[in-house]
Design a protein around this nucleic acid. Structure first.
Lengths: 256, 256
DNA sequence: ATATGAGCGTGTTGATATGACACATTTGAG
DNA sequence: CTCAAATGTGTCATATCAACACGCTCATAT
């Protein structure tokens, strides 16, 4: 361990010149008609439950580790899922990302050089909450699927990052059909519509939505139907990756 | 100066843990119906003109400098223009970005710690070649407006970065009207159409293009006309920022 | 058993946007 | 004064879009 006190002037200079680089992940899930984001809880003082601080999952990039690899590592540690939708969307480099003394306190606890500047590369990811349950297995800290509409104050500039992620997600959804990434493998059109409505922040007409999305041709209707619902059972659909790929290579447009 | 030889083990470790962070800029211009990119020429050996190596303009991020600020600094040094269209589009962190011995050789010449890993945050920028001439004033090295279709092998992973920039630019153009950023303040619809055609890589129908773009409402027709052309003079137009802003805040769509 | 509540599934019409398509005009150059 | 080159203009057929309402089916509650 190198604490600041033991560092030489040269070491200090090197640390100043070389910012740390981290990766932060905005992990989106969809549950009960709500868009959620996976937050990590840090108890600064185990006994004081008032001092709860939430942040996005993230970590320093390892030596010799690609940025994408680093993001996947963080995701896997948290969710133990490997093949996820994952996309880098922005790098945040404000020299004053440490916004208050609580942030600084936490950095002191976990970093070798807590005063060093940190530049973070942010990713967002879409996971199927329904299929895989959150598996904080190897991870020591508590996690929380927080509805994005109720996000509390987060550490550092994480609120800013989350907002940027939402904007990117919205743009992406208008250009590529990624909504199903948030749903179980088999889903109903109602669920899919809810995803679109939630992310785009609009209300859509059911009949128009069905027509539009089915005409794209990448949704495969199954024979199977919903079970155990207190109303008419909806037909289940699957995203048909193969057809999608072949349609996409045919230069087709998927703007919604 | 700290050469690797004089460094202690601790210093080495710090350098390893803390990658350098740089900003690279893909500066696009448009000239004679061609999309161009501003490259920098590095002569490793002043006498050997065979050893020409081109790269994107870029630099290490200064201590306490925001990423955007850093990008603007690089741009200003090269073009002496301040208010440019500038957009961050991706961070590249492959640990093996130094692709060959020429790269390494160059790093040796300009960096304190040439072996350190470098993570780069890439921006692209749109400039009006016509209005402002390239002013490499304060800049020692030679620059070249290279047609993107004829890009040579570039240093490091700069070809990859350039390609990604092109993709981002294409996406952006379909969503927001940024074509005029590449043209003089006053331009003809023919010029603008050429910009769209070049960036999108398609051929467009003149009448349909005019109808579509004029219906958006943010192009202000001027009384003035083109001069000195060996054919009918085209009417000049201006991008009307005010109208655009007010239309945009009205939630309108500008997809092309 | 039966009534209720909740979400499913379905088609038409009018308005708007789009792509395809051709020719006379104006200018500088030779 | 002829030529080459780019401007400017309208229609029609098609596709896309938004708006709109009601009967059906299931689980639950009574």
């Amino acid at each position: 361990m190198n604490t600041p006190e033991t560092m030489t002037a040269v070491e200090n200079r090197l640390v100043q010149l070389n910012p740390h680089v981290s990766v932060d992940c905005v992990i989106f899930g969809f549950d009960e008609g709500d868009l959620k984001v996976l937050l990590i809880e840090r108890n600064l003082d185990e006994l004081d439950h008032q001092s709860r601080l939430y942040s996005l999952p993230g970590n320093l990039v390892d030596d010799n580790e690609d940025l994408d690899t680093s993001a996947m590592r963080i995701l896997k540690e948290l969710t133990s899922i490997e093949n996820l939708f994952l996309e880098q969307f922005y790098a945040f480099g404000d020299p004053n990302r440490v916004k208050n003394s609580t942030d600084a306190q936490w950095l002191n606890a976990v970093r070798d050089v807590p005063t060093a500047r940190v530049i973070t590369v942010a990713y967002y990811s879409l996971v199927k909450i329904g299929d895989y349950q959150t598996a904080p297995s190897s991870f020591a800290r508590k996690t929380w699927w927080c509805p994005v509409s109720e996000t509390p104050d987060l550490a550092f500039d994480h609120n800013k990052i989350l907002n940027a992620a939402l904007r990117s997600l919205k743009n992406k959804l208008r250009i590529e059909p990624i909504g199903f990434e948030l749903l179980p493998k088999k889903f109903t059109l109602g669920q899919l519509q809810k995803v679109y409505e939630t992310i785009l922040g609009t209300v859509l007409d059911k009949r128009n939505f069905r027509r539009k999305i089915l005409n794209k041709g990448f949704l495969k209707p199954l024979q199977e139907k919903q079970k155990g619902v207190p109303h008419k059972r909806a037909r289940l659909f699957e995203f048909d990756q193969e057809t999608y790929d072949s349609l996409k290579s045919g230069q087709l447009n998927f703007e919604f």
